[in-house]
């Protein structure tokens, strides 16, 4: 294959320059710029302390888990707006089962994952079988899921304080699983939630890059009709994408509950937008067909670090929102360059 006349001429650039013009390269540039920002505005050296990096990763973890599922969905050319609501369902369910009903931790975790998968599967069926637009189907699920979370809690936060039928307030002991998930290992340097997040990212990433299903997700996002006419099981593949996203929401909900030591039916509001921003900053195309989990990791770290740097510099919330908005636009503009 020495004949390259049939192909677009590749300019004679160095490997490094070529890397920088790839999606991964552009995502890396965005991440590096944020790090440089941290080096400059290091809040009297706080940026150079290990704890700051540990916290940046830990605080990005719940969003990161959502972004993992979101990546899968966005690669098919879809979107999942319901992630924050399903997270809330999982968080309150987990709290009710473990704190109020004293269920064993592992059964509670399993139950949450099944419920999350089920809610995702409903979105998936609406999109793959009933052919609803993903935006509409998951918008409906976003509302419905929030309703579920409020219904099963009566709108109250589920914590260790509970009122019995006589109006007495009882304080229950926080189940061990909460402390376990919110703990740290390796001398307190790595949070368990970060490990859970990295595990989800790694496993899903492996499916994306090494499993038939991953390839099928990309082909559907790239050209659904061509994929269908090549024998790709389009309905099943799309259904599974939303189901996986639902599972990730359940995991994120458990992590969120553990960190807050309670189940809040209002949890996760607006998280879907952060998750989408992380995926898009990484360079996964909202149009579908292009992207990957490695890119999403860069996107997660970019936003995670940005938030952390702004907070250690005591930038007020208004400023944080303004700066984050600008950074999202800049990052996506860089990603778009040179693409027809």
């Amino acid at each position: 294959m020495t004949d390259s006349t049939q192909t677009l001429p590749l300019k004679n650039k160095g490997a490094f320059v070529q890397f920088l013009s790839s999606s991964a390269g552009r995502a890396t540039i965005a991440f590096v710029l944020v790090i440089v920002l941290g080096l400059i505005f290091n809040a009297d050296g706080a940026f150079f302390k290990l704890g700051m990096h540990r916290d940046a990763l830990r605080q990005a973890s719940v969003f990161g888990i959502l972004a993992v599922g979101m990546t899968v969905v966005i690669i098919t050319g879809g979107i999942d707006l319901s992630v924050g609501s399903i997270l809330a369902v999982s968080a309150v369910l987990f709290s009710i089962l473990t704190i109020h009903l004293d269920w064993p931790a592992w059964i509670s975790i399993l139950a949450c994952i099944i419920v999350g998968a089920g809610l995702g599967a409903i979105s998936g069926s609406l999109i793959a079988v009933a052919k609803l637009q993903p935006f509409i189907a998951t918008l409906a699920m976003m509302t419905f899921g929030r309703g579920v979370a409020k219904y099963i809690t009566g709108g109250q936060k589920i914590s260790t304080y509970l009122t019995n039928s006589d109006g007495e307030v009882i304080i229950k002991e926080l189940p061990g699983v909460f402390k376990a998930i919110d703990s740290r290992i390796m001398g307190g340097n790595i949070a368990i939630v970060s490990i859970i997040f990295l595990f989800c990212l790694l496993v899903t990433g492996l499916f994306l890059s090494r499993h038939k299903w991953g390839r099928e997700l990309f082909s559907i996002g790239g050209n659904e009709e061509a994929a269908r006419l090549s024998g790709v099981p389009v309905k099943l593949t799309k259904f599974l994408a939303y189901t996986v996203s639902g599972i990730m929401c359940a995991v994120a909900g458990i992590a969120q509950a553990a960190q807050e030591t309670q189940g809040d039916p209002e949890a996760g509001g607006g998280y879907e937008l952060t998750a989408i921003a992380m995926v898009v900053i990484g360079g996964t195309s909202l149009a579908g067909g292009r992207g990957g989990m490695g890119l999403t990791l860069l996107g997660i770290l970019t936003i995670g670090y940005l938030e952390k740097i702004l907070s250690i510099n005591a930038v007020p919330e208004s400023g944080r929102l303004l700066i984050t908005g600008v950074i999202i636009v800049l990052a996506v503009l860089t990603q778009r360059k040179n693409r027809k």
């Binding site: 990309f218 061509a226 006419l229 292009r290």
Partner: peptide
């Protein structure tokens, strides 16, 4: 272009699309 190939994927991915199983 519209119904035969996934233009955003590699030649390898396209050739192996139907026989992936």
């Amino acid at each position: 272009k519209a119904t035969g190939l996934v233009l955003s994927m590699s030649i390898i991915a396209n050739i192996c699309m139907s026989g992936l199983v």
